[in-house]
């Protein structure tokens, strides 16, 4: 069957099976930033944004995305330039192995979309569903705080 959606501002039609999870459809169509780490919605590596909300795509039925607006990590940059959030992650050492990074970026991006002035606790809360085994979360949390500040300055 066909799935119509908007992904990273592009209109797309995907061939899917009714049983497909969203992660399988995305990865099969080249959105390999979407990572799988647990298949049960616990680790957050597969996080994508659906209609403004960060969602674990490994337990999300693809079919539910008809007409939805999706953002994956591939869609965060603009005109080939890193977004402020991505830039802060690279610059501030928030990336180590990077496997959890796309999911973390999207959880943070979703937060900043709905709350451009987050407190530290808001950031920790937004990233609490993204397991990272490398960083101890110190630098990712700092990077999101710095991005929020820089984005305010950029406006």
């Amino acid at each position: 069957m066909k799935l119509n959606l908007k992904i990273n501002s592009e209109t797309k039609v995907f061939d899917i099976d009714i049983r497909d999870t969203l992660i399988d459809v995305l990865r099969a169509n080249g959105y390999t930033s979407v990572k799988h780490g647990c298949e049960t919605g616990e680790c957050g590596a597969c996080t994508v944004i659906i209609n403004g909300t960060a969602v674990n795509s490994c337990i999300y039925p693809a079919i539910k995305c008809e007409d939805a607006e999706l953002i994956t990590c591939e869609g965060l940059e603009k005109d080939g330039k890193l977004s402020i959030l991505q830039e802060k992650f690279v610059e501030m050492g928030a990336i180590q192995c990077g496997y959890c990074t796309p999911g973390m970026l999207l959880s943070a991006h979703a937060l900043l979309m709905r709350n451009p002035n987050p407190q530290l606790e808001d950031v920790k809360d937004a990233l609490s569903g993204n397991y990272c085994r490398c960083t101890g979360y110190v630098k990712p949390v700092d990077a999101v705080m710095a991005a929020a500040k820089a984005m305010k300055g950029a406006k």
Partner: peptide
């Protein structure tokens, strides 16, 4: 010095290739 991570940009852009990619 705090040099920029050489694979940082591609990871942040979701382009880094792990085995499954």
């Amino acid at each position: 010095k705090n040099k920029r991570k050489v694979d940082g940009d591609k990871i942040a852009r979701g382009r880094a290739q792990y085995v499954d990619d």
